[in-house]
Design a protein around this nucleic acid. Structure first.
Lengths: 154, 154
DNA sequence: GAAGATTGAGCAATCAATCTTA
DNA sequence: TAAGATTGATTGCTCAATCTTC
């Protein structure tokens, strides 16, 4: 016989699914209407902006963003069309590598967009919780993430 | 000046996004390969199976699943093709209402699929956490969900 | 006009296959 | 042969518009 979930375990599990669905949609709509960026595109720009020289290897970027290489490729194409990023051969001796690099326009766009985005995350996530709850979420979700072994960094 | 997130707040936030991405993909692949169902389709069947008479109004179902009405409509079509569910006019005096109803085949499929699905959720989520961590996640995520005001029920 | 539901166009994600270089 | 990256076909999602009934 299977070991069903307790009521509390169920709340934790459905909580993860529900909260991420709701917040992701909310954020996507906000970013699209305000800045014309999808949430994924915004996260790409954040990572590139923080990276040395504004550039990162495609596979590495896909890893930290928990997306597939195909999906990332598509989004980088969109960012290239919008002139927010470009592709550059990686300057290793390995000619297979490709880097995505944020452009000056991309940085401007990001820096103009970020404050309101952070405000939204605060309003609907951080500020709804006590500091202890935030710590508990960081702790628990970090444990799950560590177990899943994604290439993330935080 | 915007109020940036602290390192811990960032871990909590990226934790939600990362864990849900990773687990959702993992579960989707598992369900598709084992049962030919997407995660969304599985959740639909769970809800219908638990509902009185195995049926639920389309809008209500979309609400508890945090999905759009269009998205739900598409998935119900797929479930109809597979004979796991069907559409029925709601038996209110209001002729606008439509119910989705799980079929006997759908119930069989669900009951055969559920144990391994729960085992997977345990393996990669519940069992990775202490009972206190599970309680903390249920608590914190519940608070966020309550604030977002989704039509969920748990 | 508003609520419940459905449709269609366009966009985005996935999976397998391909191409190139190591 | 394998790693890095890209593409193509297919599926699924989102948004706006539509249709019907209240």
């Amino acid at each position: 016989m299977p070991q069903w979930l307790t009521e509390e375990q169920m709340r934790a599990w459905l909580g993860v699914l529900g909260v991420s669905s709701l917040l992701d949609r909310l954020i996507d709509q906000d970013l699209k209407s305000r800045a014309g960026l999808s949430h994924v595109q915004y996260e790409i720009l954040v990572r590139l902006d923080a990276a040395p020289d504004g550039k990162m290897r495609m596979t590495e970027l896909a890893g930290v963003l928990f997306t597939t290489k195909s999906g990332l490729n598509y989004q980088i194409q969109q960012l290239e069309k919008a002139r927010f990023a470009r592709r550059r051969p990686a300057k290793t001796h390995d000619a297979r590598g490709v880097c995505a690099q944020i452009s000056a326009t991309g940085r401007k766009k990001l820096h103009k967009t970020a404050p309101q985005h952070v405000a939204l995350v605060r309003e609907h996530f951080i500020d709804v919780l006590t500091p202890a709850q935030v710590a508990a979420l960081a702790d628990g979700l970090g444990a799950v993430r560590a177990h899943l072994g994604g290439a993330g960094d935080f």
